[in-house]
Design a protein around this nucleic acid. Sequence first.
RNA 1: GCCGAAGUGGCGGAAUUGGUAGACGCGCUAGAUUCAGGAUCUAGUGGGAGCUAUUCCCGUGGGAGUUCGAAUCUCCCCUUCGGCACCA
Length: 835
Amino acid sequence: MKYNFTDIEKRQQKLWEEKEIFRLDDRSASKPYYCLEMFPYPSGRIHMGHVRNYSIGDVIARFRKMRGFDVLHPMGWDAFGLPAENAAIKHGIHPAKWTYENIDYMRRQLKRMGLSYDWSRELATCDPEYYRWEQLFFIEMLEKGLVYTKKSKVNWCEQCQTVLANEQVEEGRCWRCDTEVEERELDGWFFRITAYAEELLEGCDHLKGWPEKVLIMQKNWIGKSIGAEITFPVKGKDQPIKVFTTRPDTLFGVTFMSLSPEHPMAMELAMGTDQEDNVRTFIEKWKRSLKSERYGETEKEGVFTGSFALHPVTGKEIPIFIANFVLMEYGTGAVMAVPAHDQRDFEFAKRYHLPIRLVILPRDSEIDPENMSEAWEGPGILVNSGHFDGMDNQEAKKAIVDFLEKEGKGTPKVTYRLRDWGISRQRYWGAPIPIVHCPNCGAVPVKKEDLPVKLPFDVEFDPKGRSPLPYLKSFYETTCPRCGADARRETDTMDTFVESSWYFARYICPDDKNRPLDKDRVDRWLPVDQYIGGIEHAILHLLYSRFFTRVLRDLGYLSASEPFDRLLTQGMVLKDGAKMSKSKGNVVDPNTMIERFGADTVRLFILFAAPPERDLEWSDRGVEGAHRFLQRIWRLVTDNLEDLKNVRGKEYSSPAQAASRHQALKKLRQKTHQTIGKVTQDIEERYHFNTAISAVMELANETASVLRRESASGDSIPEDALWPVVLEALETILLLLSPVVPHITAELWTLLGHERIISLEPWPEADKDAAKIDNVTIVVQIKGKVRGKVQVPAGASQEEVEAAAMEETNVKRHLEGKEIRKVIYVKDRLLNIVV
RNA sequence: GCCGAAGUGGCGGAAUUGGUAGACGCGCUAGAUUCAGGAUCUAGUGGGAGCUAUUCCCGUGGGAGUUCGAAUCUCCCCUUCGGCACCA
């Protein structure tokens, strides 16, 4: 019988669909398990990254199901986004049509992979029935003060004709098209993610099932700094300048002050001084410079303002500079400069010949205050610091802030790097922001009962790429929900990351027409037990989802604080050492591979070639190898089908009895049950599918070798003993492999005469007695070098093993004339004799 | 610059807690089968030495250390990848 994977896969998939075996009734589940993979953007067709992502998720979902869990395993589409609009401009096809056609095609592709999704829960985020709820959240967040609008400097991508969030700018470039980002002043809507900064940071410590790497990236992104805000009076002015510092201990080392060129007082300080022209020139030059020129480590430059601040403790005059390296967005836009203990201030002081005043003396290294070559940023003892002298600098931080606070000159302060999430996009293909701009009332939310604000379909696309919405009268012309006056509808749409920040919750109740989330149902399933996706979302999507979950919790929609209990970040799929991409021409198309080898082979290869978190090198030879293995399994069952089927009909020995009748069978049975243990552990605890698969390969090899020896040496093993043990081994192989290669195992399972679909079978349990090893090989080392091996019964005492070891000729040879000083014995493993 | 991860045969990788380094697969070599190729099967496959023995030496990026014993722990260095990047 030939392994006709095309027919088999088609037939099995049809059967699963007809019998709805992966459909879940979430309300009657007694052992809920939520397995989720990041949903795809319907870009056209799936790529190997998707294949890997979904194969990993499918093994976990199928495994859990066989372990008796009620598995929620949904799939949907992250369907809003710019490529759809670009396609519209380029090919004249409507974004909706383009998107839904892609969804249809990609859904077929996913189905061909044999993934165990409950397709009845499928959703697309561009569906008004989906985004209407998001508009509702927006309004409720607005009511709670979690949404606000402001005019601000934003990241603008000219190519995409839209604003980008901070998280979407990578090295000063657009995350999507790599265009250099410009700065623009624009009105925009913001989600107050900073209100949750502390909670999001603190939450990282409880996400035990997340990779450390992702948590560190999130923590860094939130960027908490503990310090103080200190007020410096300005000589001859009423208004003081506030600075933020994490080093209040260095307060007495302040010799000047640096302001950002964007600081509101920058120009004012220079007015009327002889520095006025210099400062104006400097600021103007800075404003003209590109963001990319300011970015990174550029030469420190600045200009004196002509004004002086007064040291809050000593009252000494401190020159105020404008400096190119001071960021307006962080802290207060002004810094107290301590050149002796901050490298940037040090470089600046050197360049402009400003005094350097040492106030922290390191304990063990010598510093010559006259000839410092770099700032000392380490710990030490305070000097030149008035009555704080002699104090440890860590203690001094608190002491000085306490002192300033008492004097009314400073307060403890915590600052975060995280900025609020700008969600306005000047794009068409997104969820409309449910706001109306009224000349009398200002920005007014749409009435909840009027939701959704539907995205209009009959639009003309602008070849320059601008959104058509601001030009579409029928859309923007409206009346104020509050006063009824003629008003203009908001024409920006929401960042598509908003949709993906809560889709995992909607999958639980996609059928609910009356509310976004049914709390009772949602609370049973969230957080997601296992989430799987690419590392590229380490900050973006994963941070936004964590934020959104907390918002929904505080709006009363659900109880969870975290969306994802465990997170698995899979590595990339590479070809010839590089990420697959059209421009490099190293793309391997999943379709081609599935046609040539079948979905099972592709799944098997991709899971076998590397552990999931690591990058995976695509290898055509490796795929052939995976296919060969499946062929072997196929033959192993079909070549012996009659004998195997006979086992149940005839009065054969039970596997346990049969094993006791022949050594080779005992060994095979032992291997069978050991493999169950190993595979279960590898999948359940470690997600190391590669080693799980290799363990099954070993069992298959052992089974084949028993059969081969049997046929070669005639009838040394009685049939009624052989076949029960071989059948047990083969059925175990099928069950253990079924989450990985569901089609071939299902087919063979049926051929062996089983009525029930293999995916509905319980996961095998290892028989501890059968798996037990009775003889172990103990390594005998002499001074840590292997000199021999001895066979002893498992659990043998040190005396027994020593006695056996002394019989070994090679061991004897090495011990000759030497004195045994010490013997180390590790039970069932090794004996080390030290001479 | 800072933070993090990784470095093991010709290749992908294994070694879960410090205890036989190289499981499993790919590739390669030889043989069987075959008209041939492919497929399949069998045996071998880290390097070196060798009185061919149940042998010895070397070997997990490099160097030191801890230990009876280190791919695994500690310190220093090198390389690659990822993240952040003047965050006061």
